Simulated scan of single mutants.
Amino acid sequence: MTLYSKIVGTGSYLPPKRVTNDELAQQLAKKGIETSDEWIFSRSGISARHYAEADVLSSDLAVAASQRALEAAGLQANNIDLIILATSTPDHLGGFPSTACVVQRKLGINNGGAAMDVQAVCSGFVYAMSVADSFIKTGMHKNVLVIGAEVFSRILNFEDRTTCVLFGDGAGAIVMTASKEPGILAAKLHADGSHGHILCVPGNVNDGAVAGNAYLYMDGPAVFKLAVSVLDKVAREVLEVAKVDAKEIDWLIPHQANIRIMQGTAKKLGLPLEKMVVTVDEHGNTSAASIPLALDQAVRDGRVKPGQNVMMEGVGGGFTWGAVLARM
């Protein structure tokens, strides 16, 4: 029997603290940084974002999103035999123990299943889905919890208005399980390390202390140009593998980074903007959490229905990019 992987439950969580553009502009003004709602929104499409409190970690957001995904899937935590968590803001310096292992403990999973983090920045959730799909198709794992969780507010320089206004915190999760029916129709992943310098956190740890700059750095124009190009190409690659026409895409869920990048991608694919799920206006860029956050919102409000084709794609620092076509 041919095994497939299928998404059977979605969940998401946003920290309660919502910060509008006006509120952020007022905070930045106290530091002598000038910005405004109009300046932020016109360049990004962002109106607000959520920030986690100081004592809240990526794992805490991940657990809340995972519990909702498990409930939607009708599964108990101990039914999960693999956790794959995408994050650029892990709970621990050095990335271990992995945030996936922390989530496993906090969910009370004690069945000896596997858990690991994936680091591909804003493409992380697409990477994690692809890994889960492969594990399920080989029969190695049956029920996989795939999570994107970020507290990006911790790595933002609030004296750099070109980056600090763009990002937010949150988590999204899905449960993928073995199925006799096709779910993940195709996936493609790519990376090009020669572009790593245009979006990065350039610092590192040396002798127990941070050496260099520990804040996020982004060359906005360079990222914009590369993102629009690669997102169109990888989406077409996935369609070709799946033998699906672009017109058969019911919903496009791109990484929620910038509304102009997202609109450019939809236009190149010949998709009406009404077929694109947009949450960047309220969430900002939540990196690896953005796609599952948007997917869960669209599932729960009834837009995404069983049997529909959903194209999910992301691009992030590294430079990484990828896409997954799923039949819900």
Rank of each mutant, 00 (worst) to 15 (best):
T2H: 13
I7C: 06
S12M: 08
P16H: 04
A29K: 00
K31I: 05
E38V: 13
W39N: 14
S47T: 13
Y51T: 04
Y51S: 05
Y51C: 02
A52V: 12
E53D: 15
L57A: 15
S58H: 11
S58G: 15
L70S: 01
A72M: 08
N79I: 01
N79W: 01
A86D: 07
H92M: 12
G95D: 04
Q104C: 10
K106V: 11
L107M: 09
N110L: 11
A120N: 05
V121A: 10
V131G: 06
V146M: 10
V146L: 11
A149W: 12
V151A: 10
I155R: 01
I155A: 03
I155G: 00
L156Q: 07
C164R: 03
C164I: 03
G168N: 06
A186E: 02
H190W: 04
D192P: 08
S194H: 14
G196K: 07
H197N: 13
H197C: 07
H197S: 12
L199T: 09
P202C: 07
P202S: 07
G203N: 06
N204G: 13
N204A: 14
A209Y: 04
L216S: 07
G220L: 13
G220F: 12
A222P: 09
V244P: 02
V244S: 01
E248L: 01
I249C: 03
P254W: 12
Q256M: 12
T265P: 05
K267H: 10
K268L: 08
G270K: 11
G270Q: 12
L271R: 09
L273G: 06
M276E: 08
V277I: 12
D281C: 07
E282K: 15
E282G: 15
D296A: 10
A298H: 03
A298R: 00
A298L: 03
A298C: 05
V299A: 02
P306T: 09
E313S: 15
W321H: 05
V324K: 05
